[in-house]
Design a binder for these strands. Structure first.
Length: 495
DNA sequence: CCACTGATTACTAGC
DNA sequence: GCTAGTCCATCAGTGG
């Protein structure tokens, strides 16, 4: 590499930075929200943060063997070891390659083995609070059982559509003035080290609990109302050996939380048994995980290059396994009005709507396909199910509408994140009016369907990083969580 | 068709 | 405050 090449490289790099700066500047003009804070010194709000045990000695184990997705290599499912727990422990597991750039994954015994892991063994904090999370969730589930419903606050609701929605395990609906969403300093915390890949609220009104999964296989919990003596309600676990790609909590039993991992594992955190149980393991990379809302024994997840698997947790077997896309599937979402209808988004550039009762595994045909010019990173149905919103790195957010989703509209949104920032995914709030989506200027853009445009940007001086993954609290209208690639979580509230 | 290479440039940990 | 390290994303370009 000669010095003249370096100079040329440096020049191109500066040009790129300048060009991106101009793009951001254009975005700023577009936004109707004050940009006063864009260059202002940001206050660091890090009073709350995860705590972990000291780094254990890195253990070098045996010969290094790289596991690769068989599906990605075109090996048919029969030839793979995909399947349930009856399969023998894969020897490769014990010699799994530990990336040298990831000291975090070496700090303790990696739970990359088949079988249950006790929650206390997976606890990664050093504060002696390893049982506090169990107590908190148990108390909450106890209440739910007594009230014979998802929670005991149903009586406080108007006897309306919302009651039915709650009983069905769905989220509540309602409109929110986005201008009223506030980010308070006590609602910011760092839950895990490194990049957050998945984020969920616990579906209950009895507490405000978020859980995140990061790139190192850590899972962090935050009881937002947790007391200071309880570690601010922040608890860190390490149940997976690699990136946590999906989290799903049973809306009828919040003591059951599923999580998936790039390394092919699905575990069930069962608070009653106090273990991270092994539910599924295969050679394929699992990119996303979803729980069927009305049939919570059915896990839907994506495998390898374009595959979808539907796993019956009770029976311990697959009820459907087929290739729906040409490349990795990034999200699977259920239509709340008709839960036989799902939407998938894929790196192959398509977002598809399917009827799960009618998928021919040999020749699957979608009800509807929306094509983007590049990879699609999410496809989510609106709260009523009447719209589908897609997010693609082709800098478009797509909306499908109409009785058969025959109407398409594309809205410009800058979706270029670099390799250190997770991709943006536009998520719905509590009604069909708009979606929330991160932007590279440390804000949350609100795109209104009717306006086909970004009509507001939520910003705060307290945000020190880009929020890229979001979840709207299913039962607490106006409570929005955003996660960053540095392990932080922001929670906006209405008051 | 696939495998590989190179560029990208936000954030945090740690001095 | 500043700097080094990050490296399981993604795309474009290449070479077989």
């Amino acid at each position: 590499m000669g010095s003249s090449r370096m100079t040329e490289y440096e020049r191109r790099r500066l040009e790129n930075i300048k060009r991106n700066g101009e793009m951001l500047a254009a975005l700023k003009i577009h936004s109707r929200v004050s940009e006063l804070s864009a260059t202002a010194k940001r206050e660091r709000a890090q009073s709350k943060s995860y705590k972990r045990t000291p780094v254990k000695k890195p253990k070098t184990e045996g010969p290094v063997v790289l596991r690769r997705s068989l599906r990605a290599r075109g090996v048919p499912p029969d030839a793979a070891t995909a399947g349930g727990l009856s399969d023998d422990v894969d020897d490769e597991k014990k010699t799994k390659k530990i990336p040298k750039w990831n000291p975090d994954s070496m700090r303790r015994k990696s739970p990359g083995e088949v079988g249950p892991v006790a929650m206390r063994d997976a606890y990664a904090g050093d504060d002696g609070l390893d049982h506090k999370l169990v107590e908190t969730i148990s108390q909450c589930s106890q209440k739910s059982v007594l009230s014979e419903g998802p929670c005991d606050s149903i009586d406080n609701l108007e006897k309306s559509e919302n009651l039915e929605i709650l009983k069905a395990g769905k989220g509540l609906r309602g409109s929110v003035d986005v201008g009223a969403l506030q980010l308070k300093s006590e609602n910011i915390a760092r839950l895990v080290p490194g990049r957050i890949m998945s984020l969920r609220f616990f579906p209950t009104m009895d507490m405000q609990m978020v859980v995140v999964g990061n790139k190192f296989g850590d899972v962090g919990f935050w009881n937002v109302n947790g007391k200071k003596e309880d570690g601010d309600g922040i608890y860190l676990y390490h149940p997976h050996p690699g990136p946590v790609s999906g989290i799903a909590i049973d809306p009828f039993s919040i003591s059951k939380m599923y999580s998936s991992c790039y390394d092919g594992f699905i575990r069930l955190m069962d608070v009653e048994k106090e273990v991270f149980d092994m539910v599924y393991y295969s050679e394929y990379t699992i990119y996303t995980l979803s729980l069927c809302p009305h049939d919570t024994k059915s896990l839907y997840f994506s495998e390898g290059k374009g595959g979808v698997n539907v796993w019956d947790v009770r029976a311990g077997k697959s009820v459907l396994s087929c290739d729906l896309h040409e490349d990795r599937i990034n999200t699977i979402d259920f239509n709340s009005e008709n839960e036989n209808i799902i939407a998938t988004s894929s790196t192959d550039g398509a977002a598809c709507i399917w009827d799960v009762r009618n998928i021919n595994a040999d020749k699957p045909e979608s009800l509807k396909t929306l094509r983007h010019k590049r990879a699609v990173h999410s496809a989510y149905f609106s709260p009523t199910g009447k719209f589908l919103a897609t997010t693609s790195i082709d800098n478009k957010v797509g909306f499908l509408s109409g009785p058969n989703y025959e109407n398409t509209s594309m809205v410009y949104h800058y979706n270029q994140t670099n390799r250190f920032i997770s991709t943006f995914r536009g998520i719905w709030g509590w009604d069909d009016s708009s979606i929330f989506i991160g932007n590279m200027n440390r804000g949350v853009d609100v795109i209104f369907v009717a306006a086909k445009d970004t009509v507001a940007t939520i910003r705060s001086d307290l945000m020190s990083a880009i929020p890229c993954r979001f979840h709207a609290h299913p039962y607490n209208i106006g409570m929005l969580a955003g996660a960053t690639s540095g392990g932080q979580v922001y929670i906006w509230t209405l008051s």
